[in-house]
Write a protein that binds this DNA or RNA. Structure first.
Lengths: 192, 192
DNA sequence: AATTCATTTTAACAAATGATAATGGAACTC
DNA sequence: GAGTTCCATTATCATTTGTTAAAATGAATT
C-alpha cells in the first residue's frame, strides 16, 4: 500500500472527505522516519506539525519532578497524533512524544493545515472531528481512571492494544496505568 | 445584575461575540433553579441541554463499582458546563451532575443551540472555543495527575477554587483528588 | 553454544494509604 | 441552652503499594 493511500485511509476512517480534499492534505504531507527511542516532539520545544502514524507506535509523556517518565497516550499505526493546538501552549510543546518502535510518519505543517481548514469545509469538518475524538478519548480515560482499578485499566488497555506489553518497556505501561512496574508485574501474574 | 447580562458576560469571557449574536443565545435561554444536592443531569438518562452557571456551584461525577461517587469536574459560578456532546454517548449521559449548593442556571436546548451554531459564524466560533477550552482543561488535569502528588493537586485546586473545602463535603473533594477523605484530612493538617 | 545485555519477575522490607470506628466541633432545632 | 445531627478529624490497625536489590528470563551477538 502506498503512503498516500494509507494517509487517505486514515482520513476517511475519521471523517468521509472527497478525494479532491484528501488530495489537498496528502500533497502537502511529508514522510518522515524515526528510530525507536527518538523523541521527535520534545517538551518546551517548538513544533508546528500535525502527524499521521503510518507504521509503528509512539507515546506521549511528561517527566515528573522525580525525573520519571509518565506516559499519557499511545498512538498506534493508522492513528493521528493529538492535534498541534491541544499539545502546545504559547508555542511550546506541553509533552514529549517518543517513537516506541521504528516509525514511518506522515507530517504536515500545522499552519498549512490550518489554511486548508479555513478554505475547505470538508477539511474543517474533518479537523473538528479529530478534535472531538481527541476530547472523547480524554473523557473516556478520565472516566476509566475514576471508575476502574489498576487491574481493570490493564484489562481495558489490553483490549485496545493487545500487543503493547510485548513491544514496549513495562515501566512505560505502568506509568500510563498509574502504578509502578513492580505492581504491573504483580497484576500480570494475577490475571495471567 | 440581570440574568441576561450575566449570561452575556459569560459568553464574552470565552469569545467576543456581537450583541446581536449574544441576543440570539440569551433569548433562547431559560432560567432554572436547583436545590443543593439535586442531580439535574443523571447518568444513563437523556439530557439535551447546554448550561451556564449563574449562581452556585455544581460537580460532575460517576459512580464506581463500589458505589462511591468519584468527582470529575467542578463548575463554579460564571462557568459553562461541559458541552452536551462531550458528556453524552448514544443519547445517554455519561456522567451525573449534582448541585453542590443552591443554584441558578441558564439552560438552552442543545439542538436549538446547534442550529444557532450552523447559521451564525460567531456563535460557531464561540462554541468551538468552548470545546477547545474543555479539551484544554482535560489536558491540564491529565498532566496534573501524571506529574503531581495528591498534596500538590490539592494546592492547585485551592488556587483555582479556594472556597471549595468550606462549602462541599470533603469526600467529594477527596474523590476528585484520587484519595480518601481520611487522607485528605491528613493532607489538610500537613499543609495547613 | 556461551556470553552479554536488557528487562521482567520475585523477594524482603518499609512506607503510605485505606478501612473502621471513636472523638471532637460546629450548626441547627426545639 | 441542651440535645441532635452532620462532618471532619484522629487513632488504630490492616492492607496495599512502593523501594531496593537479587534472581530469572530472554533476546542478541560473537
Amino acid at each position: 500500500m502506498t503512503d498516500q493511500i494509507k494517509i487517505e485511509e486514515i482520513i476517511n476512517s475519521i471523517y468521509q472527505v472527497s478525494s479532491a480534499s484528501r488530495a489537498k492534505i496528502t500533497s502537502a504531507m511529508e514522510i518522515e522516519f524515526f528510530e525507536m527511542g527518538f523523541d521527535f516532539i520534545s517538551v518546551n520545544k517548538k513544533n508546528i506539525k500535525e502527524y499521521f502514524v503510518l507504521e509503528g507506535i509512539c507515546g506521549s509523556y511528561i517527566t515528573n519532578p522525580d525525573g520519571d517518565k509518565v506516559f499519557i497516550s499511545f498512538f498506534p499505526e493508522k492513528s493521528i497524533l493529538s492535534p498541534f493546538t491541544t499539545r502546545t501552549s504559547k508555542g511550546f510543546s506541553l509533552i514529549t512524544i517518543k517513537a516506541l518502535t521504528n516509525m514511518k510518519i506522515g507530517s504536515i505543517n500545522a499552519e498549512v493545515f490550518e489554511k486548508l481548514m479555513v478554505e475547505d469545509l470538508e477539511i474543517r469538518e474533518f479537523a473538528n472531528t479529530v478534535l472531538r475524538n481527541e476530547l472523547k478519548k480524554k473523557v473516556e480515560k478520565e472516566i476509566g481512571f475514576a471508575s476502574l482499578s489498576a487491574k481493570e485499566r490493564l484489562i481495558k488497555l489490553r483490549q485496545e492494544l493487545p500487543y503493547l506489553e510485548n513491544i514496549i518497556p513495562h515501566p512505560y505501561i505502568a506509568s500510563y496505568l498509574g502504578i509502578t512496574n513492580v505492581s504491573l508485574s504483580r497484576l500480570r501474574k494475577e490475571i495471567r
